[in-house]
Each structure stands twice: as structure tokens, then as C-alpha cells.
């Protein structure tokens, strides 16, 4: 089998596992898995921004929040969820470009600071502008969608709905990565001087990655509102933005599987470590500092190392004289 076939096979098995996983588990685990799926989508978006074109965004929570509030506002007024997707995607794409454009004009890395300031502002809008967002009480009774006549009101049904979203996003990003756009992202990251010399508009492509990353944050927000069925400002704080960034790094920035692992370590793992809940975020951040010190390539980088080690060992044992 060549590596490509192997990868498709692994992806297929992974999907089957994710479909079979919740069967027989209690409702609460369906909620946790749904949260994992939508967190992964937000992290995949941030991986475009940080992992592919090397720009730090500290405002991903704001985009998730905008997606969630757009969904709550529209669906509680009877609009279909599809409208929320379109508006959340478009609004976050536009805002992402609107922040990225000025940030990329300066030679200094301004994006982290502009996104940080944006996140702070958006949080205040959520909390203070009661007429629109319901203030600290938020918006209740966000409905869950029906798809092809199937209701997703039950936790398991909604998990499959999230999984479907995750599959679509993964496929889209997979396509993006193989396309000339993906090549341009990789090229401008590897050698911006050469990229410009061969006609790649490094600023435009960087801006596209930032905007798409923000838009995926919005998509995650749509699912978030429908999962919890209410939105309030609290979750969309700087802590969420930082956590999402740390998930991308933890998984391995720029790696397709990184966000899946990073989000699993942030969302699913603490459920098994209930006793450590208060200290979990602290531990996660400490672990990231250690990763940066010893294995900046993250969990996927560690995985690669193990794989090469195993392959070397097996090659050595195959060669060894009997």
C-alpha cells in the first residue's frame, strides 16, 4: 500500500470510530463529543491562521461568539439554521479580513494585538448591549435544526449533526490544502522572499487564511448555540481564544490532525480527570510551555518521531543476522 491509500484508509477508520463511539454511552458523553467536534472546527480555523501562514490570532473566541449570537438571534426569530451559517460565515470572513488588512500593512506583528483588542471589544458588546444580545442573561430557547425530516433535538442526533459538519469542514480544508492556495500558504511560510519573486501575493494569501480561519470560528459558533440552546457572554472570553490557540499548538501547528488531538486533549480528557478540573487549564498551559521548550512540533511531531523510531527499530531487527 502506498502512503496515500494508507492515509485514506486511516481517515475512513477514524470516521467509523467516531460514528460508533457514542453508541452505548450515556447522553452526557454525546454532549461532550459534540463540544469536541465543534471545538475542533474552531481549532481547524485557527490552524489555517497560525499553522499555515504563521499569524497569531488572539480573537478566535470572538468569532465563535459572533457565530453563536448570529445563530441565536436568527433562529429564535424563526429563520432557518442555513441562514445562520451563511451570515455567520460571511460576517466572520469580512471581520477577519477587516482586522487582517490593517495588521498586515505594518512589518511588525500587529495581528495578535488587533485580534486581542477585537476580542475584548466584542465581549463587551455581548455583555453590555442588552437590546441586542440580552446582556448577561443572554438568549434562551435556541432551537435545534431538523435535517431531511430528522430532528437533532436528542443528544445523539445532534452529535451526528456536529460530526457531519466536522467531516464537511475537514474535507474542505483537505481540498484547500492540496489546491494551489494551500501550496501558496506553504510557500509564503517557507520563504516569503522567493514566494514574492515567483509572483505569489504573500499579503493577499495571508489575509485569505486569516479570514477563512475566522469564518470557521463562526461556523463552530453556529453549532455551539444549537448545542447549548442558549448563549451568554461568559464563554467567549480571552481564555477561550488562548485555549483554542494552545490546542492548535498542542496538537501540532500546521498539521491536519493537530486540531483533532489538541481539542480532544482540551475537551474530552478533562472529563476523565474530574478531580483535577480546577487545575486542568493551568496544567494544559504548562504542558504547552514544556512542549515549546522540548518539542515545538507538538503531539503530531512526537507521533512522527515515535513512528520513525519504530520503523528504524523494525528495519534494524529485520536486518539483524539470525
Amino acid at each position: 500500500m502506498n502512503p496515500a491509500t494508507l492515509r485514506y484508509a486511516a481517515a475512513g477508520i477514524g470516521a467509523l470510530v467516531l460514528i460508533a463511539l457514542p453508541l452505548g454511552l450515556p447522553d452526557y458523553s454525546h454532549y461532550v463529543l459534540s463540544l469536541w467536534a465543534l471545538t475542533t472546527i474552531a481549532a481547524i480555523g485557527l490552524n489555517l491562521t497560525f499553522g499555515y501562514v504563521g499569524q497569531i490570532s488572539l480573537g478566535q473566541a470572538a468569532f465563535v461568539g459572533i457565530g453563536a449570537y448570529v445563530t441565536a438571534l436568527l433562529t429564535t426569530r424563526g429563520w432557518p439554521l442555513l441562514a445562520a451559517y451563511v451570515l455567520a460565515f460571511a460576517a466572520c470572513f469580512a471581520l477577519g479580513s477587516g482586522l487582517g488588512y490593517p495588521a498586515l500593512r505594518a512589518r511588525r506583528p500587529l495581528l495578535p494585538f488587533i485580534t486581542l483588542a477585537f476580542g475584548t471589544f466584542v465581549f463587551l458588546v455581548f455583555r453590555n448591549e442588552d437590546w441586542l444580545t440580552g446582556g448577561i442573561y443572554g438568549i434562551n430557547r435556541v432551537p435545534r435544526p431538523s435535517l431531511f425530516g430528522l430532528s437533532t433535538a436528542a443528544p445523539l442526533g445532534f452529535y451526528y449533526f456536529c460530526l457531519f459538519n466536522l467531516v464537511v469542514v475537514t474535507a474542505a480544508v483537505w481540498w484547500l490544502r492540496r489546491s494551489p492556495w494551500g501550496r501558496a500558504f506553504a510557500a509564503l511560510r517557507a520563504n516569503p522572499l522567493r514566494a514574492e519573486a515567483v509572483g505569489i501575493d504573500t499579503r493577499l494569501y495571508t489575509l485569505i487564511a486569516i479570514a477563512l480561519g475566522a469564518a470557521l470560528g463562526g461556523v463552530a459558533g453556529v453549532l455551539y448555540a444549537a448545542l447549548l440552546q442558549y448563549v451568554d457572554p461568559t464563554p467567549f472570553s480571552l481564555t477561550m481564544s488562548v485555549s483554542l490557540l494552545l490546542m492548535v499548538v498542542m496538537g501540532g501547528s500546521g498539521r491536519s490532525l493537530g486540531p483533532f488531538l489538541g481539542a480532544a486533549a482540551a475537551v474530552v480528557l478533562p472529563e476523565g480527570l474530574r478531580f483535577a478540573q480546577n487545575y486542568y487549564l493551568l496544567g494544559y498551559a504548562l504542558a504547552v510551555i514544556l512542549l515549546m521548550a522540548f518539542w515545538p512540533a507538538g503531539l503530531m511531531g512526537l507521533f512522527d518521531r515515535l513512528l520513525t523510531m519504530v520503523m528504524k527499530l523494525s528495519a534494524a531487527s529485520a536486518k539483524a543476522p539470525p
Binding site: I56, T239, V242, L246, L281, L282, A285, V288, M292, A293
Partner: peptide
């Protein structure tokens, strides 16, 4: 990234 994580710590 490490200083961002340190801030959270």
C-alpha cells in the same frame, strides 16, 4: 506562544 501560555498559567 510560550508567553501566551505563561500568561494563562
Amino acid at each position: 506562544i510560550a508567553t501566551i501560555a505563561l500568561g494563562l498559567v
